[in-house]
Amino acid sequence: MTAPSYTRADFQTDQEVRWCPGCGDYTILASVQQFLAGLGRPREEFVFVSGIGCASRFPYYMNTYGMHSIHGRAPAIASGIVATNPNLSVWVITGDGDALSIGGNHLIHVLRRNVNMKILLFNNQIYGLTKGQYSPTSEAGKTTKSSPYGSIDYPFNPVSLALGAEATFVARTLDMDRNHTQSLLQAAYEHEGSAFIEIYQNCNVFNDKAFIQLTGKEERVHNRIDLEDGKPVVFDEGAKAVVLRDGQATIVDSSTVDPGAILVHDSTRPDPAIAFALSRLSHGPYGPTPLGIFRNVSRPTYESQLNAQVEAAKEKRGEGDLAALIASQGTWTVKDPSSNGG
């Protein structure tokens, strides 16, 4: 059978896309549609599951199977889909409120179980659909409608959180950088297990230019730390480098260190400690921030083990026999019908 030949249009639906004009979600949608078209995999094998929030409207715009579900619960729902049919390619679309606030529990558990699904977290550091409250990734002190005196919540670093849950694939990208996004989508797609991608996504209505340090023409030169396997972690046109000191990742002037001391990136290190150290280089997109794949390791997936147990049980005990099951606790037989004293 030849692979289907698709264009981006084949993954678009007839539904009008209703994000605010200028929203970063448009770019991500285009990136994903274009990426899937390029795979040549039958469209019916994709399932997009989302929770609630601006990002979560995403499945309505994808001409695949999809479910727009409950706030925060998409990873749990997707787990049931994967467990039932591991041949599908299952994608979770979520936001910072959906994944890290109301759905935080499901996110960490799906990551530790390594259920084969690709989780795209659109992080705009604000609640958009409810019109501008602070989110679990908003910077401390942020003034919003629900924090007129400044937010006193300490924010999550989503990459650190995912690494803490021992996710097997953790990456970060930017909505505006479609090539970078698509290269990470490709790597996530090829990964066997849970793949977590934080996508910095601009909300031009409630939190415009939150990522300007990474997207601005001037700023990004100084602040984008591109993680590439096998290469020393340097940025700012080589002027800055990352070294490990006292177990921490530290930014130094390249000229002050022996080139051999510069950290060489390796996303496949079995231990997540160095990946975690890299994630601590930034606590939000306010200065030098690593982008790319932090961690990419192999661990058996949940569904492969689940199905292996089912197959092993069938192998050992044979296909289930209902008549034998209901007689398995000991039986006795009543033979002659006769009246009783009751």
């Binding site: 729902i77 787990s79 049931g80 049919n85 089912v310 069938k314 289930g320 209902l322």
Partner: peptide
């Protein structure tokens, strides 16, 4: 009784229990 093709999922909470079942129903 996995030899009947039974898949049990001990979820992280009650909501994930029903959520996973809804996903399983869809699939």
């Amino acid at each position: 009784h996995k030899h009947f093709g039974v898949r049990t999922f001990q979820a992280e909470d009650e909501i994930a229990g029903v959520g996973s079942a809804i996903g399983a129903a869809f699939a």
